[in-house]
Amino acid sequence: MPDRIEQAKRALRADLRERRQTVSAHAREVAEAGVKEQLDALVDRIGARSISCFLSTPTEPGTHAFVSGAVARGIRVLLPITREDGLLDWSVATPDTEITEGMFGLPEPVGDVLGPIAVNDVDLLVIPAAAVDHRGMRLGWGRGYFDKTLGSMERCPPVYAVIFDSEFVDDVPRDVHDQPVTGVVTPTRTVAIAAPTS
């Protein structure tokens, strides 16, 4: 059974990755502006003073403008740094944070490194995803960093995944370790997802 789920995930990721490659430079600029507008409004609605946010790759809906703007507004922004043990360290974004290529070629900050538990103090987590379904199940890129982070948090604040509009789908394949999100942010809207009732 897990093999079938993993194969379905791999196929869906490959399709989504291919689609992201075809997005034009202009569409990316528009998407980044839209994501910034949606995330700014979400931060204001929640009243978040401390957040975590990933630094987008060139094919993801852009988060760099949002991070810069949040820092300029005095919001504490933790940026993730991948570790070989599958956990995330964190670094506080500054107006002149230097960005380097981390593990897997991901953009990561250069700065003082805080351990994995630093994220326990944030009011909002903004995380990447390949797709999210209407129940809040998130399909990541297969490395498990954010699933581990969310699964280990004592008190998890709202978690929003940033995706393109077409990646908010009816259903994604899920495994036991996959963690749901509270909502999604796309370039055109923010959708809160109700927690499933047991």
Rank of each mutant, 00 (worst) to 15 (best):
D3G: 04
R4D: 15
I5C: 07
I5S: 08
I5N: 06
A8K: 09
R10K: 15
R13V: 03
E18F: 14
E18A: 15
R20Y: 12
Q21L: 13
Q21C: 09
A31C: 04
A33Q: 07
L39T: 02
L42N: 00
S50R: 14
I51K: 00
C53S: 11
F54D: 01
L55A: 04
L55E: 01
T57S: 09
T57P: 00
P58I: 10
T59C: 06
P61R: 01
T63D: 02
H64L: 12
F66T: 00
F66K: 00
V67E: 03
G69L: 08
A72C: 08
G74T: 12
I75L: 12
I75C: 04
R76C: 07
R76F: 09
V77F: 11
L78K: 00
L79S: 03
L79N: 02
P80W: 11
P80N: 10
I81Y: 08
I81L: 15
E84P: 02
G86Y: 13
L88N: 04
D89Q: 10
D89G: 05
D89Y: 10
D96I: 04
I99T: 12
T100P: 02
G102W: 09
F104Q: 04
F104L: 12
F104C: 01
L106H: 01
E108H: 06
E108R: 04
G111C: 09
V113P: 03
L114F: 13
L114G: 05
A118S: 10
N120D: 15
D121G: 12
V122N: 05
V126E: 04
V126N: 02
P128H: 10
A130Y: 02
D133N: 04
D133E: 06
G140E: 10
G142E: 14
G142L: 14
Y145C: 05
F146A: 04
K148S: 11
K148M: 12
T149D: 05
G151K: 07
M153N: 06
E154S: 07
R155D: 12
P157I: 10
V159S: 02
V159W: 03
V159N: 00
Y160C: 01
A161W: 00
I163A: 01
F164L: 06
D165S: 03
D170V: 06
D171T: 09
V172K: 02
P173N: 08
R174F: 13
D175S: 14
D175G: 14
D175P: 02
D175E: 15
V176C: 08
H177M: 11
D178Q: 07
D178W: 10
Q179W: 12
P180F: 10
V184T: 08
V185A: 02
T190P: 00
T190D: 04
I193R: 00
I193S: 02
P196E: 14
S198A: 13
